[in-house]
Computed example of a mutant assay.
Amino acid sequence: MNPCVTIDGRQIGRDQPPYVIAELSANHNGDLDQALKIIDAAVDAGADALKIQTYTADTLTIDSDAPDFQIKGGLWDGRTLYDLYQQAYTPWDWHETLFAHAKKRGITMFSSPFDNTAADLLDELGAPAFKIASFEVIDLPLIRYVAGKGKPMIISTGMADLDEIGEAVQAARKGGCEELVLLHCVSGYPAPAEDYKLATLADMEQRFGVPIGLSDHTLNNVSAIASVALGATVIEKHFTLDRNGGGPDDSFSLEPEGLRQLCRDARITWDAVGTVDYGLKSSERSNTVFRRSLYIVKDIPRGTMITKDNVRSIRPGYGLAPKHYDTVLGQRAKRDLKRGEPLTWDDVSG
């Protein structure tokens, strides 16, 4: 099984290098120039795609101070949902500028729509794919609506159990999605590596028959790199110019050097995993001469028997392979053999 999807002309699957997505999220901190600089930095780091989020505070929640709408604990403790989203959202009138700049810089851009109007906007802008965020994986009507746009979808599975993931996949398929990627995810900000249970990746791929990947909220790249060895075809990481920038997501995002290392190391890991191959590798060819082989260790006059005293298995490897040692013992030299000569079949009788 080698499922594959194509986003903006780039194939995504096990036989392709990992597809690295830099998540801009709220790291523009309300500054369009900052958002444009993040796109530039993602290009320079080697990312395949840049993802944004398309919502407003009013499309996500209501403006209320009631206890249900207050955040308790974590990075955003004490804030209301409306207040957080009002700070973090990417203004919709920026979208056309952001998409145009990404196109100019040669990087794919798409977004996570959080309601139908957001999906409509992104479709009008020509977004080549859609991402369903982990918190929306249970919003089956939204998934069906987005699937109806007929473009590839990526669904993050943070907090979702197996049944909920299955329902999301079914909704996407029923809505018309033909190209689907699932991202294993832990929706902690940041998330501890031990929560990721990367063994889930292979199981998810087998169960759902789609390319799988990792939405990684850990503070380093270890889990992401390990996931590539376990079959992840997509890696998504939050990305910022400065972890100390003060924005809602800055503190758990990669900085440019970290993203550069992720892009490099994920591809090196993919190369290292490769395919099943027991043959001689190109880097080994020059070293075959240092294997053991059969050599004359004492002069052997013509007609003299070959014995353990005059032939040994030693380095280098220009003589007969050591597996022939028992076969040549007891045979006779067909010519005078000198100490230090490799033994060949032409040198023995029989």
Rank of each mutant, 00 (worst) to 15 (best):
N2P: 00
P3Y: 06
I7M: 06
Q11N: 14
G13H: 07
G13C: 15
R14N: 11
P17I: 08
Y19S: 00
E23K: 12
D33F: 06
I38S: 05
A45H: 11
A47D: 03
T61P: 06
D63C: 08
D68M: 05
Q70V: 13
G73H: 07
T80G: 06
P91G: 06
D93V: 02
H95L: 15
T97L: 07
T97M: 11
F99Y: 15
H101Y: 12
K104R: 09
P113Q: 13
F114T: 11
T117Q: 15
D120E: 08
D123R: 03
P128K: 10
K131Y: 00
I132N: 04
A133N: 05
S134F: 02
P141R: 10
R144A: 02
R144N: 04
Y145W: 01
Y145D: 03
K151V: 02
M153S: 11
I154F: 10
I155V: 09
T157R: 06
G158V: 14
M159C: 03
E164P: 11
A168P: 09
A168F: 07
R173V: 03
K174V: 08
C177V: 01
L182F: 04
P192R: 15
A199M: 01
T200P: 02
P211G: 09
G213V: 15
G213P: 09
L214V: 14
D216F: 12
T218N: 06
V228R: 04
A232Y: 02
N244F: 10
F252Y: 13
L254S: 00
E255M: 05
T269N: 03
V276T: 10
V276E: 14
D277E: 05
S282A: 15
T288Q: 07
F290G: 01
L294E: 03
K298W: 00
P301T: 08
R302I: 02
N310Y: 04
R312N: 12
L320T: 12
Y325C: 09
G340H: 01
E341L: 06
D347L: 07
D347P: 12
S349D: 15
G350D: 10
